[in-house]
Design a protein around this nucleic acid. Structure first.
Length: 307
DNA sequence: CGTCTTTGACCAGCGC
DNA sequence: GCGCTGGTCAAAGACG
């Protein structure tokens, strides 16, 4: 418990109302987006470390496909997204953006839902659906003793990203406990729900595969850790960094970061072509089993992007 | 033995 | 009002 004072663990995430994306390489699927004309990106690592000037980044230039026609049958559009990009990398990942204008805080997360284009609102509800139910109807069963408070659902910002990976659960230094799995509509891949095992930590994580690109894992973090990453504590020794400098050259993962937090004022989101990137609330380092660290991945966006 | 995953069921909100 | 869907719970089982 003494912990939480000395080191900042990505606590502040001042961009609650913005979406942002970061691609590890040129998102071919995104017309209009040119890494070269794109804003001066720093590596995700730098980014995480707050190297950005004012803490915000802006990715612009592509048309935010609010409704990504996702064929349950991947590959429908074939070339467009080149899902099965086993080839030479540069597998573009379609940005499942959708600047929902929902005034609810749920506007985020589900907005980019990859496989759902016909559910503009349902997403929203998910955020608030768990309204205070005072266990009226639940007390009939064991589940009855779990009053969910509305406030509970309104925890911190959410942060989603897509990663090319064969494994669903990317290691990020924290310990997670899986507490559920649901089949996702229109998607052959289930969505897994994880919760940080730390006692007072309410951070949750959802993991699912993109139905468009089965090789892409979509991870959504929700909340902020109230503790340090156990991995960083014991792992690499001093610096607090266990970021192995692995080259990860073969990491041609499309990475899409998206801040999907509560858009209390999605209305303020006026320019669909502009996304503000903020500091992820909780992503000290993501370790992709057998591949490397996420931080190694993202830089491939900056460095690997033909520079 | 402790921890984690699996799995079926339940609940709330929304759309029709 | 009903059905659908997402999110969550918790018992049971699996695993180390």
């Amino acid at each position: 418990m003494s912990g939480e004072s000395s080191e900042p663990y990505r606590h502040d995430f001042p961009f609650h109302d913005d979406l942002f994306s970061v691609f590890s390489q040129k998102p071919d699927g995104l017309q209009g987006f040119d890494p070269q004309t794109a804003p001066p990106f720093m590596s995700f690592g730098d980014y995480l470390h707050g190297s950005t000037t004012d803490g915000s980044l802006v990715v612009q230039g592509f048309d935010a496909p609010r409704s990504q026609p996702c064929d349950p049958v991947v590959g429908g559009d074939g070339g467009k997204n080149a899902a099965a990009g086993g080839g030479d990398g540069m597998t573009p990942v379609t940005p499942y953006f959708s600047a929902s204008s929902s005034s609810t805080e749920a506007a985020g997360d589900e907005d980019w839902r990859p496989c759902k284009v016909d559910q503009p609102k349902q997403e929203v509800q998910e955020e608030e659906k768990h309204a205070p139910q005072d266990g009226e109807g639940r007390d009939k069963t064991k589940k009855a003793n779990k009053p969910r408070k509305k406030g509970e659902r309104q925890r911190g910002p959410r942060f989603a990203f897509m990663t090319k990976s064969e494994v669903d659960h990317l290691e990020d230094g924290y310990r997670w406990r899986k507490y559920g799995q649901k089949a996702v509509k229109n998607s052959p891949y289930p969505r897994s729900y994880y919760r940080c095992t730390a006692q007072k930590c309410n951070v949750k994580k959802r993991v699912e595969r993109s139905c468009q690109d089965p090789t892409t894992v979509i991870t959504t973090y929700e909340g902020q850790h109230t503790h340090h990453s156990p991995a960083s504590l014991r792992g690499g020794g001093g610096g607090g960094h266990m970021l192995s400098p692995s080259p990860t050259t073969n990491l041609r993962r499309s990475l899409l970061l998206q801040q999907v937090s509560r858009s209390s004022s999605s209305a303020g989101y006026t320019n669909p072509n502009t996304y503000h990137a903020g500091l992820p609330p909780l992503l000290p380092q993501l370790h992709v089993p057998d591949h490397g660290l996420l931080q190694d991945i993202v830089p491939s966006f900056t460095h690997g992007s033909q520079r």
